[in-house]
Amino acid sequence: MDDLDWKKQLPTFVPKPGIWNEFAKDVTAMANTRGGLLVYGVSDDIEPVGINLAAVNEQQLTQTLRNGIQPYLSGVEIIPLPAPGGGGPDFLIVDVAPSELAPHFQYGWEQKDKDRATFNAPYRVGSDTFYMSEHQVARAYQERFSRQERAETALAELVQQAASVVVGESNPACTWLVVAGRPSRPVPRLVPAPSRAEAKNTLLDGVKTAARLHNDPFGVRRVLSDRLNNAMHVGLRRWVDSNILVPELRSSQAGAMVELHHDGGVVVCVDLSHPLPSQIGAAMVDTSTLPTAVGEAVAVIDTHRRRRQLDSTVDITAAIVADSLDGSEFRFLPFGYGSGQPRPIERARQPLRVLPATTELPPIADDEVLQATGKELIEGLLHQFGINTY
């Protein structure tokens, strides 16, 4: 099998001229094929012999991959597996996800020509490892670029579809934040869809995570939980919560919509407008609400990704959209709140268009990564107004 490899001993890291690092080679080969598991502590005859977990240096393993593989390979999980109760052999599992950035190259040194640096692109066929020839490398690059183009197109369509829904269902004067996340390897359609209760819990837990990440345990600055009642409705291969789509559920709160797609995708839409007086020809943008809304969107995206058991990166786009009543040109006008009253931000830019901000969420995202992801999107939008703090 090309997705499973048994290893009797832990990898060694003693540098030897002319010898490839076996650990980096095995991980790269699996990432370049279709992913798989490296199991340390099992002989070639598939006999459990165990390893010494105390001798495992995860930092050294990670550093070997970081320094010896290009481009950087994310989605590798190192899992110690001690025997229950300590009465049997221990194992180490290295879980390698198939990479959307394949081909990956393993770097090393050869003794020929004065110890020159060289590289190869390993891949697996059954239980054997081979190195890609020139035409295989070219084909792998073509497949990578095609995957990226398809992913970018699908994400852009997700944003456009959501924007058309919220703009069409709301007051034409409304300005919307649309945040969409789409996994690079969506959940196949044959996988059972989440239940209504599971979708509700995903949204609630995502909002709670955002409050914790932004040091707001009491939810003072929450957006989605204030505007939505967590009444999930069925949609086209998705669950939808909104206060604008169903007439009976419309409220006095500003508009919001959340879509949790069965394939792992997420859409979060938040109305950022306010009817300030004497602002004809301007699309109002509440820049004080925007950071909280983006932070909640990122947290919901990650929560839904984990609940759907996805181990792939998630591409995220955040856009600000509005509709003009008569099709005439208008400017996006940022405003905040002073003394509890909305007011335009002085000396801020008023762009004719706000470009989408994009980023990606890695397969394994801790609190620091989630905060950095949200910050990148927030700054990508606010900087276009000349605002560098929030």
Rank of each mutant, 00 (worst) to 15 (best):
M1S: 10
M1G: 04
D3M: 15
L4W: 14
K7H: 11
K8Q: 09
K8E: 04
T12K: 14
T12H: 11
V14F: 13
K25M: 08
K25C: 04
D26L: 01
M30F: 04
M30E: 00
N32Q: 01
T33P: 02
R34L: 04
L38Q: 03
L38G: 03
V39K: 09
Y40T: 06
S43R: 12
D44H: 14
V49N: 01
G50M: 09
I51A: 05
I51C: 06
N52K: 14
A55L: 11
N57S: 12
L61F: 02
T62V: 13
N67G: 07
P71A: 06
Y72K: 09
P82L: 12
P84Q: 15
G88C: 11
P89L: 12
H104L: 12
Y107L: 14
E110H: 10
R116D: 05
R116P: 01
P122H: 02
Y131I: 13
E134M: 06
A140E: 10
Y141D: 07
A151K: 00
T153I: 15
L155Q: 00
P183Q: 03
P188K: 14
R189E: 09
V191P: 02
P192A: 15
R196Y: 14
A199T: 00
T202P: 07
D205S: 13
K208N: 06
R212Q: 14
F218T: 13
G219K: 09
R221A: 12
R227N: 08
R227A: 14
N230E: 08
M232F: 11
H233A: 13
G235E: 01
R238W: 13
V240R: 06
D241G: 02
N243R: 08
P247Y: 06
E248Y: 07
Q253I: 05
L260H: 08
V267S: 02
C269V: 03
V270A: 02
H274T: 14
P275L: 15
V285A: 08
L290A: 01
G295Y: 02
E296K: 02
E296G: 01
E296V: 05
V298L: 08
T303R: 07
H304A: 05
L310R: 04
D311N: 06
S312Y: 02
S312V: 01
A318E: 05
A318F: 04
A319Q: 05
S324C: 07
D326N: 08
S328D: 11
E329D: 13
P334F: 00
G340C: 06
Q341K: 15
Q341C: 11
P344C: 14
I345A: 08
R347D: 03
Q350R: 13
T359G: 03
L370D: 07
K375M: 15
L381S: 03
Y390F: 15
